[in-house]
Design a protein around this nucleic acid. Structure first.
Lengths: 255, 255
DNA sequence: TTCGGAAGTTGATTCAGATCAAAGTGGGCG
DNA sequence: CGCCCACTTTGATCTGAATCAACTTCCGAA
């Protein structure tokens, strides 16, 4: 689940709708599709880009819709999901700042893209962007790295969906949030924000919302976590939490 | 599940261990990582490559092992799988002829790679190959296409693992085999070969082998399929089969 | 040709998580 | 300020698939 992290810093989500940020000062400058670009290349991108904002809950793209633009996620959290005829839905990707939407060479999108929180996108029209990818190895290389990172994350997620118990799924999910916040914060931050509703978490983990709620309650009763709020909680026993994920204790790398 | 097809043509699997095939005559020439290469570029690859063979059941790479080479799968079927401490395993990828093993920029592999049938690989040492990727946009572009195709397949698979019933999983799996054989064969070929054991199918679909067996028996009793052999069966009612997959009847594209 | 073991089937039972149902909680808006 | 509605929790029950167990079939090697 390595790559699927939430940006919990509410401040960075506050980029107003039409403010134009210079690429060189962009918060995702060194992680997004433009990460490897030099100053000249950045200038080209600067001339092509436009910002778009979406409120939490808004659908950014419907499955089957023509993909007229591609985009980098600048701020907020978005999700990719697939829905069956009878309404069952499964999240198949979580987009965080610096993640990329769309793929060159494909005209239609295969899943719904929804804003989970308020979202700001840095958009490029598809045609010119495709031309750019062909001409700019730095962009193509970075795009490949992003795709491969997503693939790694998707594979961890497949193990979770196919083989983990409800408890292991929830523990893995919380552990992912913890690791993310440790990246952002100085040290041992044990207060965690949930960026989604119980229902969204259920769709993420292949569970029902009732099961998600029950597992949270169980972890609270056992003293592993404590909720200060429906959307915010503290980690009381990180060791017990990590044991409950079902993952290798060493974090997965052998030898 | 679009991209995950089996090569059922037993003949192409019979490439002997050390036979050296010229790139220009290679069966996967126009689908593999070298698909976009011109004659000059092909010559460079020709000088770098070496073949390796693995018998059905052999492990090609263990998780955590240093990734000294990358490779194209020339013939046979291989699987990527993750295993938990207590032995639960989940397949996270299925490699068919022209698929690629390894990723530039990563030194360790994150999952086990196992030969499902007898397998022939076209290998490149990692270091020189990485240099090649940086210098040859045609290779980098094709590598990205392959990664994005795998990502699409992984997302369909996530919906299957997270939300489909045992019956829907089995029906989806058989339907995938049917679509694949239609691609290879003239028309309406209704005899299908299973390239894996019940246990491997179970690990592929996130089920137990008993459940796989029971679902096959149920489909047989209902007259949807008929087994001529444990590894070979016929489709008697393709409409019923496709209805049982739980997928949109139109194949997934709306509007 | 028979023996042995791997692969597959089938049945009985159990159990985790889904489903159905009913209260609780809290935040935003009139 | 308080009402409403979306979100959440908790309980009771049901059920699909896992588990445990026994038996069959097939294939390959002695």
């Amino acid at each position: 689940m390595g790559q699927f992290f939430f940006d919990l810093d509410q401040d960075t989500m506050a980029i107003p709708s039409l403010t134009r940020v210079k690429c060189s000062e962009c918060p995702i400058r060194h992680r997004a599709v433009c990460a490897r670009c030099d100053t000249d290349e950045l200038e080209v991108l600067e001339g092509m880009k436009s910002y778009r904002s979406f409120a939490a809950g808004e659908v950014i793209l419907w499955r089957g819709e023509p993909l007229n633009f591609v985009a980098s996620l600048v701020a907020g959290v978005a999700s990719l999901s697939k829905t069956m005829e009878d309404g069952r839905t499964q999240m198949v990707g979580l987009l965080l700042p610096s993640d990329f939407i769309g793929r060159p060479g494909r005209k239609l999108i295969e899943f719904d893209v929804t804003a989970t929180t308020d979202v700001t996108l840095c958009c490029f029209d598809r045609k010119p962007f495709e031309r750019l990818v062909d001409e700019t190895p730095h962009v193509a290389q970075r795009l490949m790295e992003l795709a491969l990172d997503e693939l790694d994350a998707a594979r961890d997620w497949m193990l979770l969906l196919g083989r983990k118990s409800a408890r292991e799924k929830i523990a893995t999910f919380i552990d992912m949030l913890v690791r993310r916040s440790q990246g952002t914060e100085p040290l041992a931050k044990t207060t965690i924000q949930l960026p989604m509703t119980r229902d969204q978490i259920a769709n993420y983990l292949g569970l029902t919302l009732e099961t998600v709620s029950r597992q949270f309650s169980a972890l609270k009763k056992e003293g592993v976590v404590d909720f200060t709020d429906r959307r915010q909680f503290e980690i009381l026993d990180i060791v017990a939490l990590q044991e409950a994920t079902g993952d290798d204790s060493d974090g997965g790398i052998l030898s």
